[in-house]
Design a protein around this nucleic acid. Structure first.
Length: 564
RNA sequence: GCGCCUGUAGCUCAGGGGAUAGAGCGACGGAUUCCUAAUCCGCAGGCCGCAGGUUCAAUUCCUGCCAGGCGCACCA
């Protein structure tokens, strides 16, 4: 597609003697295929040429040489519409996909650049709820998207492995804990203890005191406290990694909050040395009134550091460690102010790179019944969601494809894919309402729809036997074929736009469109039963669709089973 | 009160300043001697929250208002 685009830009910028960039910016895709593949609006030229846009379009269209890349170039109202040569487009696109295979869609835009992505960051003491799903899957897909564009992606899981909740957990464990149950099902059990602590603390406030005391002990290096902390952390991390494996998620670093403990004083000192900090109501703060923000707290009255202190510290450490060109924080929109404060303090400290730190916010998951609360135990476990989705997928498989061999694995791929896609397919900034019915709906705009399209293609390719390498893609000129080809050609475009806006939903939507275009095609056009040359060409086409579906799903962290 | 985000079909949502605003779900009606019907086709459904402004052109950008969500000092 780029070949065609470049040609138009060359022709027009030459003919009009205007900047290439100008032409490129104005060049657009018409709203429907009858209007061609590219359109150039002539409104802006009206003033310059003192003529009506329609007249200018007509004149230009006449002067433009059609060449072999284009079927025709014609004026339609104030637009010049370019119709790509169907034959040329089909040949170039199918050859590109089949030649580049898993590399198709990749671009070297970010070669030599590093992007650090901070995502997921579950709390050790708390279970992995559906709330953490968003950060995890959005971060993971951005990681892959930037990777596909040549960047070095660094995924950091800033684990919530420090804080007063550990005091609570230690108290709860020492009071009611049973060792076997902890070993058996660590996360669930720690969660039970956490909930029980809050229930009992309501009647017995002295528990809170005890918890604070235990956390103080932990900070002071008390051996028993340290041992328990280490144990809780290890057990939880093992569990988290198991869930990450199910979600196709991995990290380059698991350095969580505790990792920065020893560096916090240095960070606070650095801020103080710049004269940015002052005491207020006994707490150490950085005043941000000029920036229109409430102050950023570095130390509490009792001298303990806070969330912001850790994030400042972590940012400075990461800049030294990775020399990133950009750092993304995939964290809920409710923390927007916090990040604005942290970034501003970094700037005040003279860290110019602070402008390359971005908060990538996402909307919250809401419940019909109201808010979910970890403390009250009304949390929905991510794993329950994944299990139910997998179970349902298995049920449908047994119904529709009873002879399928690896049912359990495919059910997992489909069920989990549906959950991931449900989260990624909509604009991340919007709140989403958690709805079991919706998350367990496998028809329409869902991952199973895309996966099913992929499986159908695999099935056709299997039935056809081996695909001939000598095919004539130039035969693929029908409307249904061309729509599919145009979608294939737009893949890179979707990846680039997703990276520019940090919205994986753009890739997700692209895949829905491609799958839909394919489905329309195959309901209309026989493949295996087509006449020999056409059959070879169509097999090549659907193989290309298969490849792009796989590549695209990979960017979202979703598997593409060959049968389902 | 101040700040950030969101308002598009009955519901859930797409929409890269440009041509006739699109999908899915749900409703209704169809398609399987043929490559897996988790599919496809048809039909219905819209003051794009409201009012101004910028522009040749605004669902899209800016301002104000209304509605909802989320933040706003010792949690993360």
């Amino acid at each position: 597609m780029q070949t065609f685009r470049d040609e138009i830009i060359n022709l027009l910028s030459g003919l009009l003697s205007v900047d290439r960039q100008q032409v490129e910016d104005d060049l657009e895709t018409p709203p429907n295929p009858e209007l061609g593949d590219f359109a150039f609006p002539c409104f802006k030229l009206a003033k310059q040429f003192k003529n009506s846009p329609a007249k200018i379009a007509t004149d230009l269209a006449e002067k433009l040489p059609v060449g072999e890349l284009f079927e025709r170039v014609e004026a339609r109202g104030p637009y010049i519409n370019f119709f790509c040569s169907r034959k040329k487009l089909a040949e170039l696109t199918v050859a590109a996909v089949l030649g580049e295979e898993s590399r198709y869609g990749r671009l070297p835009l970010g070669d030599g650049k590093t992007v650090v992505i901070d995502f997921s960051a579950p709390n050790i003491a708390k279970p992995f709820g559906v709330g953490h799903l968003r950060s995890t899957v959005i971060g993971n897909s951005l990681y892959r998207i930037f990777n596909a564009l040549g960047y070095r992606s660094v995924g950091i899981n800033h684990l919530g492995d420090w804080g007063t909740q550990f005091g609570k957990l230690i108290v709860a464990y020492l009071t009611w804990g049973e060792d076997e149950r902890l070993e058996e099902n660590p996360i669930t059990y720690l969660y039970e203890l956490y909930v029980r602590f809050h229930r009992e603390a309501e009647a017995n406030p002295s528990l809170e005191e005890e918890a604070r005391a235990w956390f103080k002990k932990l900070e002071d290096g008390d051996r028993q406290a340290q041992k328990l902390w280490q144990r809780f952390r290890d057990l939880s991390l093992t569990e988290f990694k198991r869930i990450y494996a199910i979600l196709n998620v991995s990290f380059d670093s698991y350095q969580g909050e505790s990792f920065y403990n020893e560096m916090l004083d240095d960070t606070v000192n650095a801020v103080e040395e710049q004269g940015l900090a002052r005491l207020s109501e006994g707490a150490l703060i950085v005043e941000l009134e000029q920036e229109g923000m409430p102050p950023c707290l570095l130390r509490k009255q009792d001298g303990a550091t806070l969330y912001a202190t850790r994030d400042l510290c972590a940012a400075i450490y990461r800049q030294q460690m990775y020399q990133f060109d950009r750092m993304l924080y995939v964290v809920g929109a409710d923390q927007a102010l916090h990040f604005q404060q942290v970034f501003t303090v970094l700037k005040k400290m003279g860290h110019g790179w602070a402008q390359n730190c971005l908060h990538i916010p996402f909307g919250l998951i809401r419940f019909k019944e109201g808010k979910m609360s970890t403390r009250q135990g009304t949390l929905v476990f991510l794993e329950d969601v994944l299990d139910r989705a997998t179970e349902l997928a298995g049920q449908i498989i047994r119904e529709k494809n009873p002879s399928l061999e690896n049912k359990a694995e495919v059910a997992r791929q489909v069920g989990v894919g549906a959950v991931i896609f449900g989260d990624l397919s909509n604009d991340r900034v919007k709140d989403i309402e958690f709805d079991w019915e919706k998350i367990l709906d496998f028809s329409g705009e869902t991952a199973p729809y895309i996966q099913y399209s992929h499986a159908r293609i695999c099935s056709i390719l299997r039935k056809a036997g081996s695909r001939s390498d000598s095919f004539d893609a130039g035969l693929l000129v029908s409307e249904e074929e061309q729509v599919v080809i145009r979608s294939l050609a737009r893949f890179s475009d979707a990846i680039v736009r997703a990276s520019e806006t940090y919205k994986s939903s753009i890739v997700a939507r692209y895949l829905i469109d491609l799958a839909r275009d394919f489905n329309k095609f195959y309901h209309q056009c026989p493949v295996i039963q087509a006449e020999e040359n056409m059959r070879d060409a169509r097999l090549a086409l659907i193989d290309a669709v298969r490849q792009v579906l796989v590549n695209g799903l990979w960017l979202l962290g979703i598997d593409a089973p060959k049968e389902m």
